[in-house]
């Protein structure tokens, strides 16, 4: 999927750990890890708002679209 989550870069810039962010946002570390590694299929507006609030950034800083290689599907999630 050509949507990339730049959570690791933002955490590095803010010198914040994943555990600390998870505590502040109220999301489990496991879920934040899924988001960070790009395995997430979707993100709720409420989660996005909380992340932007704690990281002091805009949604566009957190989520970006990068064109993938030709032929890569827009949505490559599992069927079953």
């Amino acid at each position: 999927m050509p949507i990339r989550v730049r959570l690791d870069r933002l955490l590095l810039e803010r010198r914040m750990s994943l555990t600390e962010l998870a505590d502040r946002v109220g999301v489990t570390i496991a879920n934040l890890s899924i988001l960070k590694t790009g395995k997430a299929r979707a993100i709720r507006f409420s989660t996005l708002a909380s992340l932007c609030r704690e990281l002091e950034c805009q949604p566009g800083d957190l989520v970006v679209w990068e064109p993938g290689p030709p032929g890569e599907p827009e949505d490559d999630g599992p069927e079953e």
């Binding site: 988001l35 997430a40 299929r41 979707a42 993100i43 999630g77 079953e80």
Partner: peptide
Amino acid sequence: FREGARLRGEAELTI
């Protein structure tokens, strides 16, 4: 059930 399982998978990976 296949459609239900697909939606369940999506819900699990929705953060």
